[in-house]
């Protein structure tokens, strides 16, 4: 039996506000097979983004174990996690989070700086990724010279340029108008269908969630 791409086993996550413990996840279990496109929906503060952070190893569970892309994320050291993220995780953010002083091509090239690829190979990868998101003609544009939808597509190109196993998308359409949002969701669907990427997307937007194969409704730390 194939190992799932992402697996949460009895994961509990709490934050502390002063001395008060605030539970976010309680005995949470989740298994996402490789190549699956899953949307997580839920109200603000329900713990949706926490799931993404835990998968990427940006946050640690209070208890339980998390497996993703072949490793037990919750047991890795920070330096090991960084290497693993560079290889296996692509992040798409609500506010794009591009580096404003770098061009679109340079932003996309950033994850490749951590690889052993030569300059020419990196350029080929960058052009391919930007071509895939339909921005071959915007290579040398700075983020301020792009529309919101274009910025998000650069963000997606940056997330996929190193060919990661898992794409994590945090409200990828949350800052876009309807048509730009549909273009972005069409792109994510294409990445899922053509490149077989495992996609875990957090969203408030039911229309965006409809693009996923499966929707998980999340509230107060549990799946409803």
């Amino acid at each position: 039996m194939n190992q799932p791409a992402i697996e949460f086993r009895r994961v509990t996550k709490s934050y502390f506000r002063g001395n008060q413990e605030v539970p976010i996840l309680r005995d949470f279990n989740l298994s996402i097979p490789a190549g699956r496109f899953l949307a997580v929906m839920g109200p603000s503060g329900s713990g949706k983004t926490t799931i993404l952070n835990l998968v990427a190893g940006l946050d640690r569970p209070t208890s339980g174990t998390i497996h993703a892309a072949g490793v037990t994320v919750s047991q890795q050291r920070e330096s090991e996690l960084a290497r693993w993220r560079a290889r296996h995780i692509g992040f798409v953010f609500q506010f794009y989070n591009l580096i404003p002083v770098l061009t679109a091509a340079e932003n996309v090239e950033l994850p490749l700086l951590l690889s052993t690829l030569a300059k020419r190979e990196r350029t080929t990868h960058v052009q391919a990724a930007l071509g895939l998101v339909g921005l071959s003609d915007r290579l040398h544009h700075y983020p301020r010279q792009l529309s919101g939808g274009q910025e998000q597509r650069v963000g997606i190109a940056r997330a996929i340029v190193s060919d990661p196993t898992i794409l994590l998308a945090d409200e990828p359409t949350g800052n876009l108008d309807r048509s730009a949002a549909e273009a972005v969701m069409a792109l994510l669907t294409r990445l899922h269908l053509e490149l077989k990427k495992t996609i875990l997307m957090v969203t408030h937007d039911p229309r965006a969630a409809d693009y996923a194969q499966e929707i998980l409704h999340f509230d107060k730390g549990t799946v409803s």
Binding site: A56, L58, S79, A82, R83, W84, R85, A86, R87, I89, F91, F93, N97, I99, L110, P111, L114, R158
Partner: peptide, 8 residues
């Protein structure tokens, strides 16, 4: 963001 990209 750089850390999410794998920067150590």
């Amino acid at each position: 963001v750089l850390r999410t990209l794998g920067f150590r």
